[in-house]
Amino acid sequence: MTTRAEIEQHLAQMTLGDRKAFEALYDATAAKLFSVTLRILKDRALAEDALQEVYIKIWHRAGQYQANGLSPMTWLITVARNHAIDRLRTQKAPTAPLDVAEILPEPGPGPEAQAVAAGERTRLQACLDTLEDGRAEMVRRCYLDGATYKELADAADVPLNTVRTWLRRSLLKLRECLSQ
């Protein structure tokens, strides 16, 4: 398990042009970031290509990660997620979505990784569980599938503004719960 300090060290070295540090960062994080691009793009070739672009961005932006106050792993995940969503939304003619089970590979994260993250994930879920029915799934779909208000509105068969009102209210409730 690569620690936060190690990832920060790799990023700092990368700003000096250290390609070994880049490789070490890649080795420590690629499986995680690939899971993100795969989930969002739901197409293996697209996800691989997006992953390459993600690491190209990370190389160029290594010096900027602290500017927004994110932890290094969150920053890396955010770069990967945002890039994959951008790709998803600019695709003119998306291929028919494959069944998720076909795409998402076994095995899961190692026991260490699960143990470390379990706290955050459990806490998020506990707060999601306080939301009204269906709202938690909306938040999850936005994050993991890049769903838009329009898509959520279409799926729920309600006007877009209604979905926005629902979700904003839910997010504030979530924020309150997560802040406790």
């Binding site: 690629a30 899971s35 690491y55 927004n68 590979p105 955050e120 999850r140 994050y143 997560l178």
Partner: peptide, 23 residues
């Protein structure tokens, strides 16, 4: 705050090493 908390969703995703040629 949001970016940190929401990133926990990615723990639902099974990790997978990209192809060996990707790097």
């Amino acid at each position: 705050f949001w970016a940190e908390r929401l990133a926990a969703f990615t723990e639902d995703l099974p990790e997978e090493a990209p192809p060996p040629t990707t790097f």
